[in-house]
Design a binder for these strands. Structure first.
Lengths: 216, 216
DNA sequence: GGAGGCCGATCGAGCGCTCAATCAGGTGCG
DNA sequence: CGCACCTGATTGAGCGCTCGATCGGCCTCC
C-alpha cells in the first residue's frame, strides 16, 4: 500500500541509512510546524535548521534542495492519513456504512490536520513535476479506496452512480471544504459538518431514495 | 453588488483617477497571464512591468507593493465571475432549475478560467489579512447567492436541507474540483462533470426523493 | 516653467546553497 | 592501555545571486 510509491529518493551526503531515517523525521517535524505557520516560501532553510537543532550544513547533508523538505513532509503526512483511513473502515461490510465511516474518518483527520491540508493544497505547486507525480500517486490510492466502496455499493444495488471514479474524487475533495473554507464555516461544529456531508452524499448516490439516512 | 467591497484602496503616486483605472487594467491583464503560468512567487515585478509595457518605476507609481498586484487581479476576477453568474440565473423561477443553472454556469466559468481558480486557491495566502478579508467578502456574496436559491427551495418544500449556509459553501466549493483535481479527472468532459455534480447535489438535497432528475 | 507622468540604474536585504575547517568515535598497532 | 590514524558527520561564515523597492533625472504638455 503506497509503500512503494515512486520514491524520488532524496540524495544525501550522509551514508548511514538509519541515521538518515531519524534525521528525516526530525526535519519533517520541524518543517511541518514552520510550513504550517508561515507557508513554504516564507520559511527559510536557516529557520528549519535551527528548529530541528541542526546546522545548515548538516541539514544539507540529508537533502539536496529546499524542495526535498517539502517532499519529505508530504510523504509522511499522506502515509499517515492513509493508514488511519484503512484502520477506521476495515471490516465494515455494508457499503453504506463503510462510506459513512470513511467520510467521518477523513473529516476527523482533516479537522485535526487542517494546517497540513492547507499546506497540501496551497504549496504543492512548489514541487517539481516529479514530486507532484508522487503526490498524485498517493492521492490516487486514497481516491481508489473510496471508489472501491462505491463499486461494492453499486454491485449490491445500493448506489446509483454513473461515474464512480469521478464521484470518488468529488467526495474526497468535498471533505477538504472543512479546511479550505473554514473561515466561512465558523459556528459549525465538526459533527454538524460530518452529518450534513454524509446526508448529502448518501442521499445523492442512493439507488433507493426511500431509504433515507437521517430522514428527520 | 460587491462594488463597494472593503476596497483596501491601493495607494498610488499618480493622481489621475482615469489613468489609474486604465493602467490597473493593463497591469491586471499582464499579471494574470504571468501568475497563471508561473505562480505569484515565481513571477517578478520586472516581468510584469515588461509584459504590460511599463517601466518598473512607472509600475510602482500605480501600486505600492507586489501584493497590490495580486489584489487587483483577484478583485477583477471575482467581479467578473459574479456578473456572469447573476446573468445566467436571472429570472429562473423554479429553485431546482435555478440551482441547476447556477451549478452549470459556475462549472463553465471554472472550466474557462482554471488557471485563475488555481491561482485563487493556491496564492491567496500571499495576501495580507486585509486583502484576505476582501476576498472573503466577495466569496460570501457568491455563496450567499447559492444560499438564496436553497432558501427559496426550502420554503417551496422542494429541498430538505438543515444547514443551508453550510450546504451553499459545499456546493460552490465542489465546483472547484474540476480545476483543483483535474489531473485526476482526465478523460471526463465538462458535460459529464456538470451532469454528475448536478445529479449528486439535486438528489442529495431533494425533499421528495421520488422526483429524481435524470433518473436513467 | 512647472506639474505630472515616465524611466531604469541602483540599492541592499535576504535567499538557497557550498565548502574548508572541525569534531567524535571507531580501529589497529606497539 | 595509549597513541596515531582515519572515516564520516557536523558546522556556520560567506558566496553568488535575485528580487522588491527607490530615487533622481528626463520628457511632455499645458
Amino acid at each position: 500500500m503506497a509503500t512503494d510509491m515512486p520514491q524520488k529518493d532524496i540524495e544525501t551526503i550522509v551514508k548511514d541509512q538509519d541515521l538518515i531515517g531519524r534525521r528525516h523525521l526530525q526535519i519533517c517535524d520541524a518543517a511541518l510546524k514552520l510550513f504550517s505557520r508561515k507557508g513554504f516560501h516564507r520559511t527559510t532553510v536557516r529557520e528549519i535548521a535551527e528548529a530541528c537543532g541542526l546546522g545548515i550544513g548538516t541539514l544539507y547533508s540529508y537533502i539536496k534542495t529546499k524542495e526535498d523538505i517539502l517532499h519529505l513532509v508530504y510523504r509522511r503526512i499522506l502515509e499517515s492519513f492513509e493508514a488511519r483511513m484503512l484502520e477506521a473502515t476495515r471490516g465494515i461490510q455494508d457499503p453504506r456504512l463503510q462510506l459513512k465511516a470513511a467520510l467521518e474518518e477523513t473529516l476527523k483527520i482533516y479537522d485535526e490536520c487542517q494546517d497540513v491540508v492547507l499546506l497540501l493544497y496551497q504549496e504543492s505547486h512548489a514541487l517539481g513535476r516529479q514530486g507532484l507525480q508522487g503526490l498524485f500517486e498517493v492521492d490516487r490510492t486514497y481516491v481508489g479506496f473510496f471508489r472501491e466502496i462505491l463499486d461494492r455499493g453499486i454491485r449490491a444495488g445500493q448506489f446509483a452512480v454513473k461515474e464512480p471514479h469521478l464521484l470518488a474524487v468529488c467526495i474526497l475533495f468535498l471533505c477538504a471544504v472543512w479546511d479550505l473554507k473554514r473561515w466561512n464555516l465558523q459556528g459549525y461544529t465538526l459533527e454538524t459538518v460530518i452529518e450534513s456531508l454524509t446526508t448529502l452524499i448518501l442521499n445523492g448516490i442512493s439507488a433507493d431514495p426511500l431509504v433515507k439516512l437521517q430522514p428527520q
